[in-house]
Design a protein around this nucleic acid. Structure first.
Lengths: 221, 221
DNA sequence: TCATAAAGTGACCAATAGTCAGTAAGATAT
DNA sequence: ATATCTTACTGACTATTGGTCACTTTATGA
């Protein structure tokens, strides 16, 4: 058995080594400009070997994204283990996304890429374990939000006629949307002249966002 | 001059003919599976000709997207020409997005694709007239929202301490996000079992969305 | 009728994701 | 120690497809 186990370890190590190489190239050149030949070269492995460990280029890139997701989930889980009112949990969680975007811009870029890309492109990767792991983390994040909403309904910081699952979707959606808009803003596309005239910057966008979320969720008296 | 004019007309016509062909293929097979050879064949034109009228595959696809944008803008403009309180205008505009998604699913798919794709892929198309037109329409939509917010502040249906540009960004962002989430939902990815248990469907998502928007924007007494 | 310009063509090129027949390493059996 | 078998690895090769360009066709006008 020791032989089999060692093999297992070596395989895992090799896999990580390949992901490391791919990550390096992706972070340097952007996911659009990655060639599998280059990844193979940097991983000191032949191109064929890449395809022993990953079904396709897509799965390899997804494996990088998974690393980012794990960081994000860990952060969210850590924030939500601290005590607090439901509405505060929501706020902390949203803040996790924004902090993730700031602290891990490379992973975040992948995050945006994958969360927004059409699924048809993902089709060939749907049945991989990498995809399954990504989905699992997505689910976990969603349920953290649902639970936070439920807590808020219990402790009276969130309107109790709302459906927690539905509210969780709204929060995921609006966070996602704002994060995208802020990306556009940072990249200078998109009406930026008018916005700077109007004294709108990323900071004030997030401020207003939090304000609106809280106001929209609070109980009607 | 008549000759030159006729040429101009013929060119425009040829261009439309190519976009028609491309649209047919894109709508049939999805933008990812379109080959320029096939477009050329269907347009009854040689491949080289495609590149006389469009800088790249991207610009051709963008020209299809532009058609969708024009439909959407027209719809929004029409809704906003009718009188109403500011907050109602906002609501109508949001509804335009959702209706657009339902009535023009193909254009809408392109819409999601383009609004979320990284700009690095768009780089080669940035200096085209097609891109300029798309941006112009994007700006117009944005300013429609800004104006609606300003109207709302005037008529007392929207909290007057808010910055209209900032609010407009929030609305664009959350609408965009919800629209994406609803897409995921419809495509069956994404936690759908739990949601159907919790009686959440597209309809109820949009209901809650409107409710939250209105609540978050209304004036504090 | 011929010269010039504009529009159009399609064989060709370049880039690159993915394959597969063959090789190497090393474990296992004799 | 040798032969055999298994597993991992290799890299030349194929297939696909976006884009190019030297050449042909068509139309205009002198």
């Amino acid at each position: 058995m020791s032989v089999k186990e060692r093999r297992e370890q070596e395989k895992k190590h090799r896999r990580e080594q390949i992901i490391n190489a791919a990550e390096k190239v992706v972070f340097e050149k952007g996911i659009e400009h990655v060639r599998m030949d280059e990844v193979a070269e940097i991983a000191q492995v032949s191109k064929g070997t890449l395809y022993l460990y990953f079904k396709s280029k897509m799965e390899l890139a997804l494996a990088i994204h998974l690393r980012g997701l794990k960081i994000l989930l860990k952060q969210i889980a850590s924030e939500l283990s601290k005590p607090g009112k439901g509405i505060e949990l929501i706020q902390r969680m949203s803040r996790c996304f924004f902090e993730f975007a700031e602290e891990h811009p490379h992973y975040f870029k992948l995050f945006v890429y994958y969360e927004t890309i059409g699924i048809d492109i993902m089709q060939d990767v749907m049945d991989t374990s990498t995809m399954a792991e990504c989905n699992k983390i997505g689910d976990e994040v969603f349920y953290y939000i649902v639970r936070a909403v439920q807590v808020g309904i219990q402790d009276g910081t969130i309107e109790n006629s709302f459906n927690p699952h539905n509210v969780a979707l709204q929060i995921m959606g609006s966070t996602r949307g704002l994060v995208q808009v802020s990306q556009f803003y940072e990249q200078g596309i998109f009406i930026s002249p008018a916005l700077s005239e109007a004294n709108v910057d990323i900071e004030s966008m997030f401020d207003l966002y939090f304000k609106l979320i809280i106001k929209s969720l609070r109980p009607e008296k």
